[in-house]
Amino acid sequence: MRPLSPPSFRDPAPSRWAYRAQRLWLTPFVRKAVLKGLPLVVLAAIPAIWLADADRRAAIGDSLAEFRRDIETRPEFMVKLLVIEGASAPIDREIRATVPLNLPASSFDLDLEAMRQAVTALDAVKSAELRIRSGGVLEMKIQQREAALVWRSRDGLSLLDAEGRRVAALDSRESRADLPLIAGDGAETAAPEAMALFAAAAPISERVRGLVRMGERRWDVVLDRDQRILLPETGAVAALERVIALEDVSGMLARDIVAVDLRNPSRPTLRLAPAAIEDFRKIQTTQAGAVN
């Protein structure tokens, strides 16, 4: 008689795939990848899937922007007033026109560097320093260009500072009679030299009418009575000082001279007026004893 239930035979051997799976699981790299990499991937995948929807991304972006807006428009960060220091009234007006500010504005929205560049782009402004002070004040410290010269150019009169930068236009010479005058094309590029020449010409300042830039390379000093001192391209100041020394010693410029030509410094030349030439000849003849 056979037993009622057949003996259950369970194969203790692992199947080939179970064996391979176990070996795979015991591989250190796979183990690490599954135990550490997989949870990380899942954790990263959940927000990634949630963010895959464009509407959700937009909503998050909006709310973030709103939150940022809220913080930016808090009264602590608002600028209510623009204070300009060191600027005269017309320049103050000009600056306010140049920098359009809708005050009150959030200090996060203000681009101080752009504003600074816009302000320094103005002719009359040498440098500007901007900062936001506590209490919602935008402070602008302006250093103005000081007009040092009047330049008569083909376009009209304008004011230059000591470096030759244009400061403003000028209606008439009389309104700034205190400033020396320069003229000629390219005069503004040699403004520092012109300043030095004016300083050197201080002993004869009451006679100096102005400087004329000749051929954009050298200066003529124009005195009253249509006298000119023609200065060389280089060493103009030294040449002028030499003329003034001569003037001191001999009162040369008071004589009937049209021009003192120092363009070649080794050979200074005087140009006399026509009447003076006649007189000079007579004197020479007389001194030579040729009596006729």
Binding site: D11, P12, A13, P14, R16, A18, Y19, Q22, R23, L26, T27, P28
Partner: peptide, 18 residues
């Protein structure tokens, strides 16, 4: 092969190393 596999699998499992 099955017998060898059984022994190897059990030994690997005990050793926790491949």
């Amino acid at each position: 092969e099955r017998a060898i596999r059984t022994a190897l699998q059990a030994a690997q499992k005990m050793a926790q190393v491949r």
